[in-house]
Each structure stands twice: as structure tokens, then as C-alpha cells.
Write a protein that binds this DNA or RNA. Sequence first.
RNA 1: GGGCACGUAGCUCAGCGGGAGAGCACUACCUUGACAUGGUAGGGGUCACAGGUUCGAUCCCUGUCGUGCCCA
Length: 958
Amino acid sequence: MIEKNYQPADIEARMSVVWEDSLAFKAGRPDRRDAVPFTIVIPPPNVTGSLHMGHALNNTLQDILCRFERMRGRDVLWQPGTDHAGIATQMVVERQLMERQQPSRREMGREKFLERVWQWKAESGDTIINQLKRLGASCDWSRERFTMDEGLSKAVVKVFVELHRDGLIYKDKRLVNWDTKLLTAISDLEVQQTEVKGHLWYLRYPIEGKTFNPEDPSSFIVVATTRPETMLGDTGVAVHPEDERYLKLVGKNVILPLVGRKIQIVADDYSDPEKGSGAVKITPAHDFNDFEVGNRHGLRRISVIDREGCLDLVDNEDYLRELPEGASQFAEEFHKVDRFAARKRIVERLESFGFVERIEPHTHMVPHGDRSGTVIEPYLTDQWYVDAKTLAKPAIAAVRSGETSFVPKNWEKTYFDWMENIQPWCISRQLWWGHQIPAWYGPDGKVFVAETEEEAISHALGYYVEQEVITAEQGREMALDRNKREGFITRDEDVLDTWFSSALWPFSTLGWPDDTPEVQRYYPTNALVTGFDIIFFWVARMMMMGLHFMKEVPFSTIYIHALVRDEKGAKMSKSKGNVIDPLNLIDEYGADALRFTLAAMAAQGRDIKLATSRVEGYRNFATKLWNASRFAEMNHCAVPDGFEPAKAKETLNRWIAHESAHTTREVTEAIEAYRFNDAAGSIYRFVWNVYCDWYVELAKPVLLGPDGPAKDETRAMVAWARDEILKLLHPFMPFITEELWEVTAQRDGLLALAPWPLKPAEPTPEQLAMLAAAAGPTDPLVSPMLAMPIFDHADFTDPKAEAEIGWVIDLVTQIRSVRAEMNIPPATLTALVLAGASAETRERAPRWTDVIKRMARLSDISFADRAPDGAVQLLVRGEVAALPLKGVIDVAAERTRLDKEIGKADADIKRAESKLANEKFIANAAEEVVEEEREKREAALARKAKLLEALERLKQAT
RNA sequence: GGGCACGUAGCUCAGCGGGAGAGCACUACCUUGACAUGGUAGGGGUCACAGGUUCGAUCCCUGUCGUGCCCA
């Protein structure tokens, strides 16, 4: 029994339990053992996060694919899980500690702090998972993974050790993006360039051997800089090799103001003669470009800023080397001054000595940390790097060859551009929460990379015995006795970039490095569904790691969806306060409505500006379906055993079977092509504008009429078409459809596992051979080329039924329209006269008398040779339908109406004729197009003739 | 500066070489036995602008203006 009102919250709560209890989403169900697998790995959300609109969209689309393929009979694995999100999570917990005025991370120490983070993960880790369940995500929840699980950690260590062994991971001292607030290195991708209004300072650097005089330009060279405080670390000045202004100065030295260091003027292309003064100061330890210039000219690197962004001068050997007397006093004065305060003070000091020529306002891009928001400091440290350039090569080739393809295709360009210019990937982070790097250091700092500490110590002992640092005897003792080797080697404190473990997600979640049945069966995965913002962070790295370790691409299709924005097109962000919480929408309108909205708006290549009114509209759509199902129930509609829609006798029933088959094809093809919006639009139209608006209405007289074969068949067909709707709609609106499926009939099983109305074809041997030869997409069932369906009922067509029902619809629509135009009240019934009707119409009409009378509010339908005098005359598919309204209608108004109609016909005739008169059109246009134009002309001419006749009759009547 | 999108009804968006579409909003009428979270009918657009290609351009090309995003 269907409840009177559609209450999404009740249904959704109940269906979640039903699915969970029946293990509906479990991969590898026994009944699917022989089925072709279909795999998607979820983009793992941050374990401490909560569901935002982007997740809602992302997971809705994945769920549509998974539910669709599950219904098509495949063994679906939608692999769920969460990401430990190193920096983000550590920040959350640290903030908590601060708010609760508890000991800080450093005060409590690494071990205690990590315990604390795990505790927080245990408390909040279920939040997002439960939210995904509320959305209806049909993941195999029994397989949930976490990037810091034991198994996944094992994969991480293995990958690190192997890449290190192969020389693809290495340690290097170079400039990194340093976050002075979080006190860690971050990767290029985590840096956001932000436009900042700053200044360009023009500084005078005195030339060696000349007496500095601010009035004498030959006594100094002017350099322009945006960061005057880094001048303390300058080790050169660069000018362009072809810049004639400075040619004779190249090779000479300048004396660094305030510091007294002697530095060289070098010629380098990096200096842009158009910019600033054409001369730039070179600070290799604090600027990426300067670092390169320094390398080219063998300039020293002097770090003058510490990890917290303060000047670091006292006891700084690099800084103090070769400085004149008195330099240490200056160092003490500025030591530990914050970089921005130092900027001000140094400029003041320079000004007081006349070293500042001028200051210009200057807008430029300044790097900021995406998490901390603080200005990133290029900082010289030892970090671990991945040789991304080498790993990128196969990843580029795989997309070039089409083994993996992007949908929409234009993202491939973005992918190639980035991959072809890829930089070494800095993977070490000075954090505590994450995978600790499996590297140990011996007493002299030598690195031993190994999967376990035992392994590392054995390598180390072997090495140091060989090096005669320890004796063989000592080595043996230390190997045997844990206490004796205590502190001999120490583990690298750093952890890995979160994205390092995410990069392994498509195979680590399946149990790799163990050779599990899941790895065999579900790798490579079929589709990856994600937003463009993580193509670099995640997609590219999965491609690299997948190809390197599995020798196969991780997925054959990468579907890139849009960003969800607010109604005005602004990116949703907490700081702007324009965030729409998907859970609020679910509470208010139901998960089905939200899902349908997102799917309907997910047109390729376009951002989604979410308007709540759309969600409301689709909630109404769900209500409509609910009520239509109630109607079917009230009329005892049920599908009898062995019912075959294609064998229906009644035209109306054949028509809905025809329309249903058409919709099935449309929806199926659209989902296969990732055109979610088209699929949603197609099913929406079918449910509302075909099934509800016409089929059910046209069926009412039969259902309310006397019992008999026609009524039996109609009851069956109403229920059958409803079931087809439930199936087609299920991937989009799983809750309401599953509920209706359950309550409308005795079922063999869940709708989630019911067969899709249109089955994919098994590839033929020829197709398989073709596939092997082409070495193309590895997934025959989703490859468009091979998706030649075996139709069951979906190839059913009945043009005759379509024509007949089309006539009924046109007739009713036109009568309604003219009634409204003539202001005939709904309560007034009118008669209908079919004038000069064809044999076909005379045969058809009696079948629809009840329906037409009911829907067009008629008292009677009759035939006549010609329309009665003073009647309103309509042209329906070329024949006259007359409403004798003498006395009721305004004759003048009717004449105006007819004139307008004639005008339209004239316009059509004119358009068609001008085209047909054009020789070039006849010569060049396709034959069908020309023929179509002729038909249009004939139809319009006929229409006009009839209308003129009608007008004539009207005149006679008055 | 380079790249990628996008300017279509009041709003949010589809469409895309052969007569402009949806939802919401709006107007009028309707509580008819699934549904007022509804029904019926209707108004509303030189498809940003200017050139070009074509028998034919909202659609393809070029340019201009405007908007957004990504990378330097």
C-alpha cells in the first residue's frame, strides 16, 4: 500500500537499511561470479571532512554509473574509503588542542599527539561515510579503506622502497616551497599564486673601488627588487648580456650595502632589460629563479631566513663568511626579526645611507600556502623527491594512445601541458600525521631505505662493518641485542605527502602488494569520476604509479565533471558564506531530488550554478511519480505473469510500449556517453509529459469503464510502464524507486539488482578480435563501438500507434487551446464536429470518444460533410475539427484568429518557396533537405486552403 | 603574458549547419475521483557585437567587447 504523501526522509531511512541488510552493493556476489566486473574507486574524501556540494555531485555521478552497470548485470565494485589528509587533519586537531587549552602538539610529543589524531579519526571518521550513505551511494561498504590502514601503509612503504631502489626517489638539497606557519615543505601544487599590491624598491649597490655618492650614478648600480629584506643573502647582481648600459660593469664587483659582502655582476638572460632598472639582485637561497642563475654562475647560496620566516644571522657561518669588521653587530641587531618587519627596517636603514633611489607601487604575484594562507618562503633544505619526469612518460603515452581517455576530451590538453613540463615532486613533509618515511640514518648520516627497521639495521650494520666503523664482533652483538644498537640508526622524522598514498588508491585498496583475487579481478578500474581541480594532484599521479607498479593504466575513462558554484556563479567557500550544505537540501527535499538536480545540471564542460528552485522542482517530480503510482495502485494495476508488452492489442497500450522503448534507448545511450543531463531530461519528459500527462489520462476511461480484455490489458500496461520507469529512474532516484518497487508488487528481489530494460551485448568473437588488434579500450562493454545492444523489448516500435495517439493528442490540445482563447469556461461543454473526415479518422474517432470528450470537455462528437455555420474550425493533421459555437463566440475574434493562422501559413509557404526557388539550394543541399522543404510547402499550402475555406464559411454564417 | 571555457527567455541552464527549448518565475482560468509539491492555456528571445565561409549560421572560422577558471 502506497502512503498518501511522499515523505522522502522516511523512505530514505528505511531503504538505506534494506540495502545494507541485503548486502546489495557487495562486489563479487555469488550470482555475479561470471559477470564482467565494473570498478570505480571513490575519490577518498578527507577522513575528518564533511559532505559538501562537490562531493554530492561527484558521488551522485559515480552512483549513477554503478547502479546502471549493476542493473546491467555486471559485478560492480565501487570501492569506498577515506584519506588521512595529512596537513588538513593535523591542523584540525592542533586547533582543537588550542581551543580546549590543552598542551600543544610539541608539548605532548609525537607519540601522544598521534594517539590523539587517531582518536579524533575514530570519533569523526564515520561522519562523511554516513553522509555518503545518506546520499544513496552504493559503495561496497564492507570494503571501506583508509589511506593509513595497515594494508595501504604496506603498499606505501613498498612503493617508496622500490622507487628509491630504482633511483626514482632521491634526497636532494634544493629550494622548496616552505610554509613558515606550518613549518613544512609543500609541493608546487599546494602553492597558490595570489596577486598582491606591493612595491618595487630601486636600490643602489656601490661599485667596488669607487666612492659611493648618491649623486654620482657611476659610483653604483641600481637593482630593482620586490623583496629588499633578502638582500642580506645576495651573492650576485645580474644584467642582460646584451644590455649596453651595463656591459662594461659585467665581471666587476659591488659592495652589498649594510652587509659589506663583495658580490659579482654577472651577465644572464634572466635579467629583463625592460623590467625595473634592468639589473636584478641575485639571492640564490631565497628565490627559485635566482637559484638557477646562481647555479649557472657558481654563486654562493646564503640562507638568511629561518624556518619560521625570521632573519637568521647570528652564528650563521654562510652569512658571516668573508664579512668585514663590524658585521656581527649588524647581525645581532637584525637577528630573529620577522621577514616583514625586517623588510621595513632594512629599507629604512638603506634610505638613511642614500641606498634607496626610489620606490614604486607594484602589483605582483606572491606565493601563498593553500592551507595556511601564509606567504611561502623559498627555503633551502634537504627533502625527498620523486623523479616525476621519468614516471610521467608512460602516463603521457597512455593518454596519447587512447588507452585512457578523458571525457570531455579537452582536459587532455591540460593533462599533457602539465605532464610534459612536470617538475620533481617534493614528497617529504615536516608533519607528524602521515606515513613516516621508511628511511634511517646511520651515525654519519648515511641513508638506509628499507621496508622495516630490522631490515634497515641489518643493512646499516653490514655497511659499517665493511667501512670498519664498527668491528664485525660489535656488529654481531648489535644485531642480536636490541639494547646494544639503541640509537645507532635513527628514523627520518618526516612523513609523506598525502597524495603519495592517494596515488596508489586504485590498487592499494584491492590488497596490493599482495596478489589478491581482487587485484586480479578489479584492476584496472573502468572509470574515474572527479573534478578538474585534482587532475594534477591525484589523477596524474595515479596514472604514473599505476603504470609503474601494475604495468597497466589505472582506469580507462576519466570523467571530469564541473565545479558546483552558487547561484551567482561564485565558488562556494566558507569565508564567503555562500556554501549550500547538501545535507540541508537532503533534509528539505530529499536525497533523490538533490541527486536528480545534480545529474540534470551536469552538462559536460560547464560549471553548475545551483539554484534551490531546481531542487524543489525535482522534488515535485518525485511527488508526481509517487502519485501516479498511487493511481495505478488504486486501479488495481499489476503486471500478470508472462505479460508481453509487444503483444498488446490496444493502440494506447502499444503506444506507451513504443514510447517506453524509445526512452529506454535514450537513457541508456546517454549514460553510456556520460551525458547525465540528457539521460535525466529524457526520463523526466517520459514520466511527466508522456506517462502522466497523456498515457494515464487517456487510459482513465478504460480503467474506469466496464471490465473486459481491454481493461485487463490496460491495467497490466499501466503497471508495466511504471516498472520500466522505476528501472530507468533508479540510478538517479534510488530511494523513491526502490520504495515504490517494493510496495507496488510482490518482487523477486531488489530494484537495485533488477535487470536494466536494455541489455548490453556480449561482444562477438569478431569484435573481440578487432579489439585485440586495435589494442584500444580494454572495456568492451562500455566502449561505444561495441555497445551494440541486444534489444529485448527496447527495439519495439509501432509507428501506427504513434500516429493515432498523436492525432488524439493534437486534437485535444488544439480544442483546449481554442477554448482558452475564446474564454469558454471549463464548465461549458461544447460539441465537436469532424468535418469531411477521412476514412482513417472515421475509423479512429469512435475508439477515442470517451477520452476526447473528457479531456477536451465536449458534450458530443459527430461527423459531417462540412463544418456547421458559425463554427470555430480547427485544422488537426490536415482535417477540419469544428466546434459549433454559434452565438457563443465572437465572430470578429474568430476571424482575427483565422487570419492570424493564415498569416502563419503564408509565412511558411513563402520561406519554403524562396528556398526552393534558389537554384543553388536545389543544387547543393542534401536531397532529404530539399524533399523536406517540398513537403513543408505542400503541407502549408494545404493548411492555407483549408483555413481560407473556414474563413469563407464563417463569413457566410454572418 | 600563455592556455581553456563561457556570453541563448526575468533567473538557472540545455541545444547546435536546415523553422529557437526545459525548469523556475510571470499572467489567466481550474479544488474534474493520482497529484494545488497539481491541471489547462498563455506572454516572453535581432541566440553579446562585427566580419567571413556556406544555397543556408544561434551553431563553423576570424576579430572585438564582457565574464570565469588554470598556468607563468
